[in-house]
């Protein structure tokens, strides 16, 4: 009775319209699970949540850059598999080209990053210069990379998995190791690129209106290629993390992550139509999805139901995005 209806409406509008809305949701998820879920608030689980979300975090960051330019990159999960196989073939203990050499790990990491950048560059060139739809280009490169990864693995080791990776490489996957540090750095650089640089403003401009951007002197094609190259590079970083963590090179790594990658960006508030989004928002989206999955898993909800719930949440996030946009426009 003490709150005037208009104040309540304003508060709702402030919370829902806030760019930290998803962060508040993370807090709500935590508060909902913590009292009823043994182990949820343990230090071990904190580490687990943080380590588990790293590959998704770096992938969602790359996807955010692409989504802001009004594109989409469906090839990221296939880049993970291809990068994993290429890197493992460079350094792998049984059949690696540089097995036993001290250069094996750095060369493998370089090969993995190079693979991602190359696939991203080809995607970007097809989209920017050949004017092909991003969905079609990245869908076909996903198929191509997936097939190539399996073919390469089978040619080299007559199996799909490559084992006996060097300990120096495996150390990249340790919780709190160099891999985690590099991911955090990459996410920070992407955030600063978008918020503090002219190039960042170009990304938004291209996403808003490529034609007007071109007229204004923005190198539209270069921005688009750059976004896909960064997305490919970030996918390679996820590949390094997953390969090191599982101590195996495999074309199957990351295959089920695509829904989560796009979902995390959308939940964070990045628009599928371009011109709107932030790396920080995607960080919140990743944290939300990971916390939700972790909490549901710990309360013994079946994985099929978890997938259904995640799909529902992403749909609600997309609807909320529309609603929030209206609220913000209205105010």
């Amino acid at each position: 009775m003490t709150t005037h209806p208009s104040n309540a409406a304003r508060l709702t509008k402030d919370i829902v319209g806030s760019e930290y809305f998803v962060l508040f949701l993370c807090l709500a998820v935590f508060l909902a699970f913590a009292p009823f879920t043994p182990g949820f608030a343990s230090r071990g689980n904190v580490a687990n949540v943080l380590v588990a979300c790293l590959p998704l975090l770096v992938l969602a960051t790359g996807q955010t850059l692409v989504l802001i330019t009004a594109g989409i990159d469906l090839s990221v999960t296939a880049v993970i598999g291809l990068g994993s196989v290429v890197g493992s073939l460079v350094m792998g203990g049984d059949a690696g080209w540089l097995r036993g050499s001290p250069l094996a790990t750095p060369m493998a990491v370089a090969a993995m990053l190079g693979t991602g950048a190359l696939v991203g560059c080809l995607n970007g060139l097809c989209i920017a210069w050949l004017r092909m739809p991003a969905f079609m280009v990245t869908l076909t490169s996903m198929m191509f990379c997936s097939g190539l990864a399996v073919w390469l693995a089978r040619q080299a080791v007559h199996a799909e998995s490559i084992y006996n990776l060097p300990p120096a490489f495996l150390a990249l996957g340790h919780p709190g190791g160099l891999g985690a540090l590099l991911v955090a750095l990459a996410v920070l650089v992407a955030h600063l690129l978008l918020t503090r640089t002219l190039v960042g403003r170009w990304f938004y401009a291209v996403g808003h209106n490529p034609r007007a951007s071109l007229v204004s002197g923005v190198p539209v094609a270069g921005v688009i290629v750059g976004a896909y190259v960064l997305s490919g590079l970030f996918a390679s970083m996820a590949s390094i993390l997953l390969t090191a963590r599982l101590e195996t090179g495999s074309p199957n790594h990351g295959k089920t992550l695509l829904l989560d990658v796009i979902g995390a960006a959308v939940i964070g508030g990045t628009s599928l139509f371009g011109g709107k989004g932030r790396v920080l928002w995607s960080v919140y989206g990743v944290l939300f999805l990971t916390l939700l999955g972790n909490g549901l898993n710990l309360v013994n909800v079946s994985d099929f139901l978890i997938t259904i719930i995640k799909g529902g949440v992403i749909l609600i996030a997309a609807l909320l995005d529309v609603w929030r946009s209206r609220i913000v426009r209205g105010s």
Binding site: G39, N48, A52, L242, R245, K255, T256, N294, S302, D303
Partner: peptide, 26 residues
């Protein structure tokens, strides 16, 4: 005995997380 269940759908990284979740659950 309470049985906590998890299915990874062929994703080894996901299964690793699920096992760690079990361990955190004690």
């Amino acid at each position: 005995i309470t049985m906590l269940e998890a299915v990874a759908d062929g994703d080894t990284a996901r299964q690793f997380d699920q096992v760690k979740n079990f361990l955190n659950r004690g």
